[in-house]
Design a protein around this nucleic acid. Structure first.
Lengths: 166, 166
DNA sequence: TCCAAAGAGTTGACGCGACAACTCTACGGG
DNA sequence: CCCGTAGAGTTGTCGCGTCAACTCTTTGGA
């Protein structure tokens, strides 16, 4: 990772920046996932679904709503729900005709795991990530994140299928 | 993602920070990968292998060296090499007895792709990520990255199997 | 009324990544 | 000399995530 000398190409220090960041990134993600998995038996992705469902457990959600709320691909949600349903975390109630299930809800188990995991996961995030950040650093990262999220190129090109309004 | 009120748990704003960052993160990674794939037909992981091999193309590398250099799991390297070999990007020369191949080298194609991809990928990274960063933000992120990488908890627990010196 | 298009959800295929198990070799002390 | 252990590389399995295809429903216009 040390090749450059071009007009708009990356300088050596930029490569180093990117490299370092990618590596830290991966490391953190891996560990966060690992701990979540170990302590509560769910993945980061599943955790997100649990939280989303839990925060509106009164009115059961639909696949599209979840996909929209999480900014995910529809099929990713469907796959994940299948895996989670198999493990008794969520329930899909039949409503349509064939394979059309509207109404996704947490099971008792799911609600339970969600509650416990939110606490534990929060602590993990604090311990591993947040506690190592000064407020200024956090602000800088947030600024970058927002810039990235606001970018059309990123949000529109390869993205998911929904989100497109209406 | 908005539940808290605990001693060492995450505050609402911390959750928001984490959420925003994770999302930006995913978005950026996805796009970077997508472009790399589209333009050069290789994944981020494959790109790393190409670069590592290219930077020492004289003395062919071994799996363990690659794994060590990239801080990856050995098996991840092996799997990736298998996929890349199948596509003609690298060559594994037989040396040991059974399935023991020492000596991994880029093919002509591989070297070619590597050279072009380094340029293109660098531009993509600059365009998508670096250009959106002020020097202070970059410094903050690097500081965080280094802190994460220096952490024993992260680097040792779930990590890869090598790296242990000697 | 009927057929086409849009929308919801599902499914399959495939690459990535982690983990564990397995094979084979090399080495070293009994 | 022999067995056990450490090290290298490989392989299988499984969950995640993306893309594309498919089914079924709804809707709406000719």
């Amino acid at each position: 990772m040390k090749i450059m000398s071009d007009p708009q190409a990356l300088s050596t220090s930029d490569w180093r920046f990117w490299d370092t960041w990618m590596q830290a990134q991966r490391l953190l993600m891996r560990e966060v996932d690992r701990v979540l998995q170990r302590d509560f038996g769910v993945s980061k992705a599943e955790f997100s679904v649990l939280v989303t469902l839990q925060s509106a457990s009164d009115g059961a959600r639909r696949v599209t709503e979840l996909a929209d709320a999480l900014d995910w691909d529809k099929s990713r949600v469907a796959h994940l729900l299948t895996r989670m349903e198999k493990r008794g975390l969520v329930e899909r109630s039949e409503s349509g005709a064939a394979g059309r299930r509207t109404g996704i809800a947490l099971t008792e188990t799911g609600r339970n795991v969600a509650e416990r995991a939110i606490i534990g996961h929060g602590k993990t995030i604090r311990r591993l990530a947040i506690d190592r950040l000064s407020p200024e650093q956090a602000a800088a990262i947030t600024a970058w994140s927002r810039a990235l999220l606001a970018d059309q190129t990123l949000s529109e090109s390869g993205g998911r299928s929904n989100t497109s309004a209406d």
